[in-house]
Design a protein around this nucleic acid. Structure first.
Lengths: 193, 193
DNA sequence: CTCGCAATCTAGTCACTGACAAGTTCCTTG
DNA sequence: CAAGGAACTTGTCAGTGACTAGATTGCGAG
């Protein structure tokens, strides 16, 4: 505590600061151009300080991904409770990907982090559960392989639309209003499931 | 020509060799760990030789992406002509993503290459056209926004499934047979469109 | 109260990378 | 056969991730 005059040797909350800076940097330039040394500079510490909080670059991105999965789980649960509509959970998924691009782009690129990290696995599990729980809202989701496949289909279409949107791959005619573009597309699957 | 004894100064087909090596390296380790110098070593040339054929790293990846879009267009056209079934075009899309992972992972990450490159744009356009032409197979694809949205939905679900599969994000129960896993999921959308 | 010790951070270094500059070799074209 | 350009090499620079050793700090045991 007491971060007063000059630079205290102990930063106080370096881990948090580095994570925030990482998300900021990722938003600006993407994972490829992320540099630990740059983050250290932004935080005003030496270039080797981050090592203590995250072992290496992959460790840093593991923390980013973990936080991302937690945020995603929160967002999906909130959407489910707010609307009770699977379609709106899908929209929330797409919304999350675009609003939290920095997190999203790391989360689904396991070669960037340590995919076996326990905390990460737990967060990922939680996000998956909150997605699947939305499927209970589907009518007649009772037996057989149908619900599982419907879940995969729902996840796929939301994930695919979000990824294509982020990659700038969609044609211009889709416009710039994310939800207006996504909702009718998702509805094509969700209303027939 | 006449690449006979020793090392000729002019390699003969360095551009092609570098591209092949790049795809190989991408398959092994992904775009993040791709190194121009490593490719040069693999090809047995100096570390600066690649610059002459591709201006910089992004230039190399532009060429990879261009080739990828061409291959994808070929695959989609072939599937359409072979089966005349939109569902099978979707399966071919997923198949391509997994079989040509190296290409696929570059193609939809425009921050890695020069997205305004004319040849790239042309190849991308061709791939998009071959996808859209498959939509003509849909019954009643005549008026309004429906066909466009159905196209986006089809693209999204195939792209999403492929991406999730590649990222290892899908639960284990999906199994290891790609088409067996993908087909029933895609069918959920394609048969109702 | 104080003292040891672990957590935190700094400083220095190494191999590697992408980009650039300048020079060398080879081939083609006039 | 000369000239000029394309293909390639050598040398160099700043930036990076990882590693090591050491300095500083604050906390808890006694």
């Amino acid at each position: 505590m007491k971060i007063m005059s000059g630079k205290p040797y102990h930063h106080g909350d370096l881990r948090r600061v580095l994570l925030t800076a990482a998300v900021q940097a990722l938003t600006e330039a993407g994972p490829a151009k992320l540099s630990l040394r740059d983050l250290a500079r932004r935080a005003g510490v030496s270039h080797a300080a981050p090592v203590h909080h995250f072992r290496d670059k992959a460790g840093l991105l593991t923390a980013v991904a973990t936080e991302g999965f937690d945020l995603l789980a929160d967002a999906l649960v909130a959407a489910g409770e707010r609307t009770g509509d699977l379609l709106e959970i899908g929209v929330a998924y797409v919304r999350f990907a675009v609003d939290h691009r920095a997190y999203f782009e790391v989360m689904f690129r396991p070669e960037l982090y340590h995919p076996a990290d326990p905390q990460l696995l737990q967060a990922r599990q939680r996000a998956g559960d909150s997605l699947r729980s939305g499927l209970a809202m589907l009518p007649g989701a009772t037996t057989g392989d149908m619900p599982r496949q419907a879940g995969l289909a729902a996840w796929s279409i939301a994930h695919g639309f979000a990824t294509l949107w982020l990659g700038g791959a969609l044609p211009e005619e889709v416009g710039y209003d994310l939800e207006a573009a996504a909702r009718p597309v998702l509805r094509l699957l969700f209303e027939t499931g």
